[in-house]
Design a protein around this nucleic acid. Structure first.
Length: 221
DNA sequence: ATCCCGAGGG
DNA sequence: CCCTCTGGAT
């Protein structure tokens, strides 16, 4: 169960397979980018924090009203967590997230003039922002190369035998060695979409999968 | 390792 | 019912 028997494969061989996967991803998910609704780096940061252990769908249903009421860091910094909670209750983990978002907005004002910093260490000092969220925001908002590893990317990296690392940071570092810098942000979003809609956690749809020729874990229908 | 947490899928 | 969803903090 879950045990994927990966082929013995040299680095050169694995790199060639990674490039074949990249080409298939480009054909299947051209121009893949985040599906989180946002109109600014600030809104993308908030939406990404909200997306932790939640579906993008639930986040996108909540953010229009949230951003109408709290459009920027200043508005959110002046709020209380209790005032934010009703807007995000249906997302789950809502008390922690409401508290983090208000504290995050206040810190953005105090330390960064209300703007989203373009620096990973600075981002990770914000409440509710860890390595994954920081990497996603840098890539999606500012085009900084990097492969953020969430639940989908971790699952696919394992199934595709692209990494055996156990931590998200370790998997990300290995993936970044396999894919060209200029493609890394795309690879992240394409793998997320692929994991969300086809290579799902429970019942992956291998017969319909464009990556199947390059996937050691593929199963028959 | 555990907690936070609602909602949808199977 | 159980599992999963673009995790992070303790």
């Amino acid at each position: 169960m879950g045990g994927v028997d990966c082929p013995r494969e040299g680095l050169k061989e694995k790199r060639e397979r990674a490039l074949a996967i990249l080409e298939a991803l480009k054909r299947a998910y051209p121009g893949a980018k985040t599906e989180l609704r946002h109109n600014s780096p600030f809104q993308l940061l908030v939406a990404t924090v909200l997306s932790a252990q939640a579906t993008d769908k639930s986040v996108n249903e909540a953010t229009p009203a949230l951003f109408a009421r709290f459009p920027d860091a200043k508005a959110l910094a002046e709020a209380t967590p209790e005032a934010v909670e009703p807007y995000i209750r249906r997302i789950g983990l809502y008390r922690t997230k409401a508290r983090n978002l208000v504290a995050l907005a206040r810190r953005l004002l105090e330390a960064h003039g209300g703007e989203v910093p373009r620096d990973k260490e600075a981002l990770m000092e914000l409440p509710g922002v860890g390595w994954k969220t920081a990497t996603v925001v840098l890539g999606a908002a500012f085009g900084v190369p990097g492969i953020a590893v969430d639940t989908h990317v971790a699952r696919l990296a394992k199934r595709l035998c692209l990494s055996r690392a156990k931590t998200p940071e370790g998997i990300g570092a290995e993936l970044e060695r396999l894919f060209p810098e200029e493609d890394q942000v795309f690879v992240h979003h394409a793998l997320v979409l692929h994991g969300r809609y086809l290579c799902t956690a429970r019942r992956p749809r291998c017969p319909a999968c464009p990556l199947a020729p390059h996937c050691p874990s593929r199963q028959e229908g």
